[in-house]
Every structure is written in structure tokens, then in C-alpha cells.
Design a binder for these strands. Structure first.
Lengths: 163, 163
DNA sequence: TATTGTTATACTCTATAACTATA
DNA sequence: TATAGTTATAGAGTATAACAATA
């Protein structure tokens, strides 16, 4: 448990979020903005899943997820198949084209980070990554279910864009 | 310089930004949303300044800053006085009411963080704060001018909500 | 002519609520 | 009746561009 002043300082630094997010967004191709990219990322990491699960992993409302998914499906980057066990559900899955898109996105962002974090050591990058994961866990509890989990369990799915 | 896989992992964790930001926004009073709050925070920390400087510190466009500032001025939380040295400029300054507002906001966010980061140690909170500051520095270069004040890093922490 | 701010416009992201179809 | 997902609507945040006043 930290002192109040610590939290206050942390909150100030949260402004970094906006800075990074805006710069990252500028990097996105016109037909695949931030929201869509998150969907691709989650599907790439966790494999096929239903809408509700995706929304949970994204920590956004189901309606928001639905729109992003529709956007991606229109472009052939993900496919929505019926769930035989529950006809209300739809199973989402990355298509090969979607996987390519995802790889391309990672390439772009990795390039940007390599440039921006030039002076950072391997350990520092890892440390920040870890702390952000914990931060997300600390917040998302109850609604989100993040946690850098091992790749998909679904058998028919190609997983992770890289590793 | 870290390996590409490190950056990729870091990018994934950036999704934490959205989670925290949305939760923080939910905490904001109806008449003072995230954008306005940032303005108050920066003015509280760095003192009076002109629009352009504020926009730079916020790392957002001047037009955006202008709107947020107008919003705050309407509510009497900041005052815009003419700059005698340059009549195009306007000097922004927190009013006592604005300071109260700011204190109140810090109280709210501190409370939330204390709750969410219950299991975090003083050192961990400090470490994350430091890394976020560095992250912002690494990104904002050229457009933003972060690196405000040396954050409290010692055991003995300043308790000033602003200055 | 360049700079400081303001305003109009457009676009993304998000949540809430109403609605359809299954369970 | 409850749940999965879609769609309509509204609100916040941001950037670009056109404009005013001053340097």
C-alpha cells in the first residue's frame, strides 16, 4: 500500500496513455483503426471465441465489439461461423488474410517502438510490460479477463501472430 | 535495444491504457471530464501559462486545448488574462475554485487507485510511475514537452497536490 | 508574412437502450 | 424469462482547416 502522493504522481503519468495511443493511432492504416486492431490482436492471441468472450477480453461493451467485428468481417479478416451448440452465438476466427493484417500491424508498431524506445534496455521494456499487465489485472477485475495467457486452446485455430 | 518480441508484448499490454482510462472517466463528475481534468492538472502543476504552452504540455492540438479551456473558464475554474507583452496571447491561471476542483479530482482518483492497487508495494507504484514518465518522454519528443518536475522518488514524499 | 487562438467540421471510440433470435 | 448479438443514438476526444487579431 503506497502513500497518497504516490498515487497522485501515478495519475499524472497516466497522461502518457493518451500520448502513446494517439501516436499509435496515427500509424494505423485507414481501413483498420485502433478498435479493429485490438480485435485482431485478441483473436490472434487467444484463438477462436464467441462475441461475448471477445468483449470481455477487450473490456468493452458487447455492442462496441459487435461493430468492430462487423467491420473486420466485411473485409474478410475474420469469419463468423454459427455455434452448433448455441444458435444465438457466433464463433469468431481469424482468416489467413486477417492473420496477414495482424502481422503487418505488429510490424508497424514494433518498428515504431524500436525507434522510440531506442535507449531502453531489454529489461526495462520487459519490466514496463509486466507492470502494465499487472495494472490491467488490478483494474479489469470483474469485467475484463486479461492476463497474458498462453495461446489458444481451440484446436482448429492458428494462433499467435508471432512469439 | 530490445528484441521485437518484447515490443510486441508491450504493445499488447498497451490495451491496459483503455481499461484504466475508461474507468477513470467513469469517476469524473459530469461537468469536468477527462479533457478538462488534464488541463486543471497541468495548470496545477506548472502554474500559469499561455495556451500554446499548455497544448504542448498536454500533447494535444491547440484547437482541442482551446475548447477545454473555454469549458473550464465558463465554470470559473480558470481565468484567462491578457498578456501585456503579446496581445495575441492569453495567460491561463487556476482560480481558487479551480484549485478546489483539482483537489477534489485528486481525492477521487487517489481513492480509486488505493483500492485498485491495494496489493502493490510503494516501490512498485513508484517504479511504474517512473517508467510511464520515461515512456512519455520517449514518445513525446519533438511535440510534447513532458519531463515536468522531478517526481517524488524518495521515501519522503511531497504531499503538495499542486504548486 | 508569421504566429496566437478560436471556431466549424468530421471521424473514432464508447456506452445505453431498444430489438431480434434463440435458450 | 433470460441470454447472445445487432443496431440506433448520443456524448466525449481528437485533428484539420478556415478564420480573426496581433506581431
Amino acid at each position: 500500500m503506497a502513500e497518497p502522493a504516490r498515487y497522485e504522481e501515478l495519475v499524472r503519468q497516466f497522461s502518457a496513455f493518451g500520448v502513446i495511443k494517439r501516436e499509435l493511432n496515427r500509424l494505423m492504416p485507414a481501413d483498420c483503426h485502433g478498435g479493429s486492431a485490438s480485435v485482431l490482436t485478441v483473436l490472434g492471441r487467444h484463438g477462436a471465441m464467441r462475441m461475448s468472450k471477445l468483449a470481455e477480453l477487450l473490456s468493452v461493451d458487447l455492442s462496441v465489439t459487435s461493430r468492430h467485428v462487423a467491420h473486420l468481417a466485411e473485409r474478410g479478416w475474420i469469419e463468423r461461423s454459427a455455434d452448433p451448440a448455441d444458435k444465438r452465438s457466433r464463433i469468431l476466427r481469424l482468416t489467413p488474410a486477417g492473420q496477414d493484417r495482424l502481422d503487418e500491424l505488429f510490424r508497424r508498431t514494433t518498428e515504431l517502438l524500436a525507434e522510440r524506445l531506442d535507449g531502453w534496455s531489454e529489461e526495462e521494456v520487459g519490466l514496463l510490460t509486466e507492470l502494465l499487465a499487472r495494472l490491467r489485472d488490478s483494474f479489469g477485475e470483474g469485467r475484463a479477463a486479461p492476463r497474458p495467457v498462453p495461446p489458444a486452446r481451440e484446436e482448429t485455430v492458428r494462433t499467435s501472430a508471432s512469439t
